[in-house]
Nucleic acid binder design. Sequence first.
DNA 1: CTAGTTTGTTAAACGGTGTTCATTTAAAAT
DNA 2: ATTTTAAATGAACACCGTTTAACAAACTAG
Lengths: 202, 202
Amino acid sequence: MGIAERKLEEKQEMRKRILDAARKIFLEKGYEKASIRNIANEISYSPGMIYFHFKDKSEVFYELHKEGFRLLMTRLKVLDSVADPFERLKAVGRVFIQFAQDNKDYYNLMFIEEPASKTGEAGGFQIAKEAISHLIELIGECQRQGRFQHADIEDFSFMFLSSVHGICALFCKDRTTNFQNKTNEELMEHGYACFVSLLEKG
Amino acid sequence: MGIAERKLEEKQEMRKRILDAARKIFLEKGYEKASIRNIANEISYSPGMIYFHFKDKSEVFYELHKEGFRLLMTRLKVLDSVADPFERLKAVGRVFIQFAQDNKDYYNLMFIEEPASKTGEAGGFQIAKEAISHLIELIGECQRQGRFQHADIEDFSFMFLSSVHGICALFCKDRTTNFQNKTNEELMEHGYACFVSLLEKG
DNA sequence: CTAGTTTGTTAAACGGTGTTCATTTAAAAT
DNA sequence: ATTTTAAATGAACACCGTTTAACAAACTAG
């Protein structure tokens, strides 16, 4: 069945071409302002064609959503080599912040914006769930080393994630401009350092 | 000039009627999905009429944006009676979180969503600036009482705001569902308590 | 090799969006 | 009573996501 195979490949290639165009448009304009017509135009096809390859706009979006998570995960995987769990935890936050700085638009797509119809909840959010399990486990390790003894693991994990996400979210929505004496990057890094020094005392 | 006065009043009343409808629609559907036609329909006027009273959709939005800030500020003002600055700081966080819980949609409008054209930057963001100045001052007071000695005030303020906002932002975008053993409210409050206990050690 | 079927694509259409503008209506000023 | 002004309208413009009838190309069966 060499023909069916080739057909499948062609279809996947078309999917890829659509996603490449969608990535460009989505990251450029954000979810709402990007249009199916823009994406189709980018690759010189009719808008309707996209609906042969994807269910709707939000499905295209969630493909990139997942892509963003894979990107972030790749960066986080590197930290497996860090032996000390607390050092690893601190690095997780730094990687998160660095990721947000390098990929403001992805970060928006992944954690802030979201299409109304949650087509890919199972897809995009599954990865998020795994990431959180990882974080909880990591904090468990820290506790086994004597850190954060009095805290509930889930509460503490949520708090850690909130703090890091808060830094990134303020950055991504340009709410950092009200703190003026520093660049955004400095503010984020100093803010995180500040948080870390609290952690070190706990 | 009793007539001119009455005319002005009528115009302001029309503005108010539009804003009442807009509040309902915006808080119900969010910025993007709410439409000028929805709002106009709500008060049985033509869509075009709104453009006589407001420059565009984002100007209507920013009026509610400011309204949300006034609401939050009213809640924060109550804390002026709390003498101890650190107690006041802790309460500020609680009020923020409570506000987000009670007014999820306002919180979204105020801190997360935003129209592309930033008509009311001067308006809505001015209040935010004041609020931050207040926060910085409050943290300064805490320092004068011996707390957070080693931290830069701006960095620390940003960190505090990030943590609190992070908690609220995760809640408002339904990213709390991945922590399952608690209700959202419990998770937020326990998470914040966790953060506060870190502060108490710093 | 032909006839029929499947597949990928298109153009047009539907009902929606923000916004503009000529036109109408009604009230105020002359 | 007539002119001027202010307020509201509704049609129009250029978009939007999505559906669908039509269509050409490619594949399959006889």
